[in-house]
Design a protein around this nucleic acid. Sequence first.
DNA 1: TCAATAACGGAACGTATTGTATCGTAATGG
DNA 2: CCATTACGATACAATACGTTCCGTTATTGA
Lengths: 215, 215
Amino acid sequence: MAQAERAERTEKSARGTKRDRSNGAAGSTGRPRSEEAHQAILDATLDLLVEVGFSALTVEGVAQRAGVGKATIYRRWPSKLPLVVEAFGQLPGFDEVDSGSLETDLKETLKTYLANFNASSLGAVFPSLAGERAHNPELSKLLEPVAKGRREPFVRIFERARERGEISEEVDIGLAADLVVGPISVMLFFRGGTPSPKMVGPIVDLALGGILTRR
Amino acid sequence: MAQAERAERTEKSARGTKRDRSNGAAGSTGRPRSEEAHQAILDATLDLLVEVGFSALTVEGVAQRAGVGKATIYRRWPSKLPLVVEAFGQLPGFDEVDSGSLETDLKETLKTYLANFNASSLGAVFPSLAGERAHNPELSKLLEPVAKGRREPFVRIFERARERGEISEEVDIGLAADLVVGPISVMLFFRGGTPSPKMVGPIVDLALGGILTRR
DNA sequence: TCAATAACGGAACGTATTGTATCGTAATGG
DNA sequence: CCATTACGATACAATACGTTCCGTTATTGA
């Protein structure tokens, strides 16, 4: 609030946007914001997200971990949620594979998927955020595109396979994608374990071939 | 809500039970603990678990919701965790089906599974608890048998199918169980939606038959 | 019937943590 | 070198936690 007041008092130059300019720009006098502190805050947020989860994460804790005053955080993010969102958004996506074979595409992409999940903090952070989702619509909305982005590569893999005639036209591609990722989700959320890349081969084989004995 | 059903339970004989040792131990003098308050507390705990999740649940909120003093709660449970555990443990299990056919068994059990998940508070509560799991070992231990109990019926269904020769000996039964439940887990955690019984048919068909076109 | 006992709901306790405001200092631009 | 803004640190009011103390109520044994 004080931030708005102060900004209003100095409104003489053409500050076209209301968007918080992180630094200088138009009427940029005074000390610029430390990009170093900015990154330290985001890093600390991610670390704490991994360690204690979303609900137990406090802005004070982030400030302490980042070696930064609380005001420095509140000057940039209005509350804990946008901060977490931005930190979470820093996590890398994962590459897609197009080898011309459905089986290879799936296995390679899934391996990347898992490596990503385990190496990055995603595997530790996502359950915490997902758990909060039901009780926090705002967070839910922010999480939606992330989850969607994780699913899309698999959907595209199946689309290509269908174009090549590898799978029937009748196969529900969205369901197929969920089927392949499913066991990983089960492992992560229901069983509380860490999904291993070793799971990938058997999963894809079983999902593609089916559980029933081939006649 | 399912609260009505829960409230329906009666245990008139609770007065003199010594097993509970809830009342005055040796010299059973003094006012007995109200079994009614006990149940009201558990019900309120479950309700709040659904509404606000595990981390945002407070004993004060439970007391208020149950129309009970906080002391009444702390007299029975030392902290929030055991209270949540007992409340969570009240949720019903689900029935198993043995029709002699793998497909029927799976579809029927899955439907019961989903109906249970949606009707009871499980679908709303489980993600919240699962999210907390990584940062709360004590809670994780509690959750383990519950998750296991949910998986076992499916494992048994596949075991019976294998004995009947419906599926090959080489099929990893645990993986098959995860494959069938997987899309539901994905829907629940990744996509944040409510799994519908309509999903059951396509899921089972695709998982049994496989994604690849049958030759 | 009545004292003894213990649980009851409600309220007050001290502590911890939240988001915000204020301090003196540091850095940049005119 | 002066105005301006961000910096880290700290102080602040408000809230909410778990705990404990109330006067009251229900039950038992003498």
